[in-house]
């Protein structure tokens, strides 16, 4: 069984990724919903001029709830 340059590229990336500690990766899984949560709380949802502020608030709360659940899940497991 021989290899090609594609195999070499794959092996190089795989070896590089294998050096990343799993604990650090675990934090990355928490960081993704955390960063999104900050964005959700700050982002301009109400760019539609007819948008009711109450609707914007509800969307933020719902989105934040979904993301907090993710943070808790990946933080605990």
């Amino acid at each position: 069984m021989t290899s090609t340059f594609l195999h070499d590229i794959g092996d190089t990336i795989r070896n590089a990724m294998a050096t990343v500690p799993l604990s650090l990766v675990g934090w990355a899984f928490v960081a993704i919903p955390l960063v999104l949560l900050v964005w959700v709380l700050k982002c301009p949802i109400g760019d539609d001029e007819n948008r009711d502020p109450k609707q914007v608030r509800l969307l933020r709360i719902g989105a934040a709830l979904a993301l907090v659940l993710q943070i808790v899940i990946y933080g605990l497991l």
């Binding site: 993704i32 999104l36 959700v40 989105a63 993301l67 659940l69």
Partner: peptide, 14 residues
């Protein structure tokens, strides 16, 4: 179902 859905759904929604 978790990281493979929720973040994309929120970005999609907003």
């Amino acid at each position: 179902e978790w990281i493979g859905c929720v973040p994309a759904m929120i970005v999609g929604a907003l």
